[in-house]
Every structure is written in structure tokens, then in C-alpha cells.
Amino acid sequence: MKMLAYTKLDSPVHRLTGATKLLFFALWSAAAMMTFDTRFLIGFAVFGLIMLRISRVRLREYSFLLYVIGVFFLLNHVAIYLFSPQEGVGIYGTKHVLLELPGRYNVTLEQLFYQLNIALKYGAVIPVAFLFVLTTDPGEFAASMNRLKISYKVSYAVSIALRYIPDIQRDFQNISFSAQARGIDISAKEKLGKRLRNVIGILMPLILSSIERIETISAAMELRGFGRHKRRTWYKDRPFVAGDYLTIAFMAVVLAALVWMTIARGSRFYNVFV
């Protein structure tokens, strides 16, 4: 099973150029991180889910990473409450206690609303991040980064990393199957401590094989004179079409509206308690 690997499909998202998707993702992420306006964040999250559906990307292609992000999401919220349980009270200037707890750990409506906005930020950025990775050809991605004035050496390095994600997954599966054939169990039937040791035993050959692949690729690129010239051409570079211009214009309008509302209100926070 491939995860976070590009699959060529015919959808409106796939037809956009890599440069458009890269620019959109950068501006979208900046907007989502900048604001705490709940209305915008809900709109961002809903829009991201709709576009994920339109792209026809299958859940199994990013389900594992979604699970990992979910774990960090929960840890982040627990940490916020443990270290700053009255952050929402300080931001919104009011205090509505829902549950009395010892010390400063009273559960307040303001804190819940603040952490809701944090959750919406995850919901706003993650679907668009998956869209960008899963609908952009690695070769075109490198060309897109270079078009946005990023060094072609950096662009090509990122492209190679994305291109070899499926190969690393295949190597992991092959090493895992070989280990299981020798009686090394990494399933839920084994105790957690031993399972972790078995997984580490699988990861070491994977790391060594990846290093060997890196050396092979580096030698091949060096023999072909990679990096000798300041500029290069790209086989998969595509010109902008109407859909690209409309997408960039849409993002520019959304960002402008967000900045205008933030300046007009004098705060990044949307306060429902006043």
C-alpha cells in the first residue's frame, strides 16, 4: 500500500500546475496560522475537505499519517491545557467557568473556545497539505519551486525525496515480510516493548539501504555534472492556464479580506463573548 505517493488522476486539482499549488499552499497556510477568526477557520476547513473530495484522493493513501497527526494533535491540546489552562480567559477578557477544579485548572468556556480554534487550524491546513503532496508530480514540483526563484538544487533535492517515498515504503514492507518469515512479530499480538525492539530491528536495514541509495544517486548526479550551471530547464514544467490564474486570484482575495478584517477589528481573535 502506497502512502503519500503521487497518483496521476484527472481532477481539477491535478490539472493545476505545481507552481500554483505550491503558492496556494504557502499563502493558505500563512492565512490559517495568522488568524484566530473562527468563521474563517471553519470556512478553510470545509473548503479543504471539499477539495480533498474533488481530487478523488483515497483515504488509505494518507490514513496512517492522519493517525500520527491525530496523536500529536491530542498531545498538543493536553499540553496547552496543562501549561496554560487560562489562556483563553486572558485572550477574550471574560471568564465563564464550566467546571471547578483545584488551582488554576478550572475549565472555562473561553479556554474551550480558544482550543477549538487551534483544532480548526489543524483542520484548515492538513487537507490542503495532503492535496499538495498527493496531487503534484515530483518532477513538476521541482520545476514549480524553481519557478518561484528557489534554487534548482534545493528543488531537485525535495523532488527526489518525494519521488522515493514509495520506494522506501516498498523496502520497509519487503524487510518486514522477511523478518516475519524468520519469526519476528511486529503485530499487536506481541508485547509493546518487544514490538518496538522488533520494529527498530527492521528500521536499521531500511536506513542502511536508504543510505546506499543516496550514495548511488549522488554519484550518478555528479557524473552527469549536476550543479555545474546556474540555471537548468525542466521537462515537466507547464505554463499557467485559466484555472491557475483563477486559483491564485481566489487566494489573493481571501487573504486580502482576512487582513482587512484583522486590521479593522484590531485583533487576530474573533471574540464571541462580547
Rank of each mutant, 00 (worst) to 15 (best):
V274Q: 10
I200G: 03
L192M: 12
G183C: 05
T38W: 05
R231S: 02
G18P: 11
F73Y: 14
I263N: 07
D37L: 02
A249M: 09
L223E: 00
R195F: 13
A30H: 08
I91W: 07
V128P: 00
L206A: 02
R232V: 05
V46I: 14
I200E: 10
P12V: 10
N106F: 07
T94I: 07
L4T: 10
I160N: 02
F113S: 05
V253L: 06
W28A: 05
I118V: 13
L82M: 13
M221I: 05
L74H: 00
A79M: 08
G225S: 01
G103V: 11
R170Q: 11
F47L: 13
E110C: 06
R238N: 09
V125C: 12
S218G: 06
P127K: 11
L74N: 00
V107K: 03
A31K: 04
S84Y: 15
I217M: 07
F269Q: 01
H14R: 05
V128F: 11
L4A: 03
A124E: 08
I160H: 03
P138M: 05
L116G: 13
V274C: 05
G227R: 06
S144K: 11
P166V: 03
E212A: 11
M1N: 07
D185N: 11
Q180Y: 09
S267G: 05
P127C: 11
R147D: 03
F44S: 00
D137A: 06
V254E: 07
V133G: 06
A143M: 09
L192G: 00
S55Y: 09
V68P: 04
A242S: 12
M261A: 14
K121M: 11
F83W: 15
S84T: 11
G123N: 12
L75H: 04
K149S: 14
S144H: 12
R232W: 09
A30M: 12
L196W: 13
L22A: 08
T216D: 01
T17C: 08
A257R: 13
Y114A: 01
G103M: 15
G88A: 06
T38F: 04
L208N: 09
A264N: 13
V253T: 00
I150C: 05
K8I: 05
I118F: 12
N76S: 01
S218Y: 14
Y92K: 01
P239G: 04
S187N: 08
S63G: 08
R15H: 12
I211E: 09
R197S: 14
F83Q: 01
L22M: 10
A119Y: 14
K21Q: 08
M261E: 14
Y122R: 02
D171L: 01
V158F: 15
F269S: 00
R195P: 08
W28T: 00
E61Q: 14
M51D: 09
L120V: 05
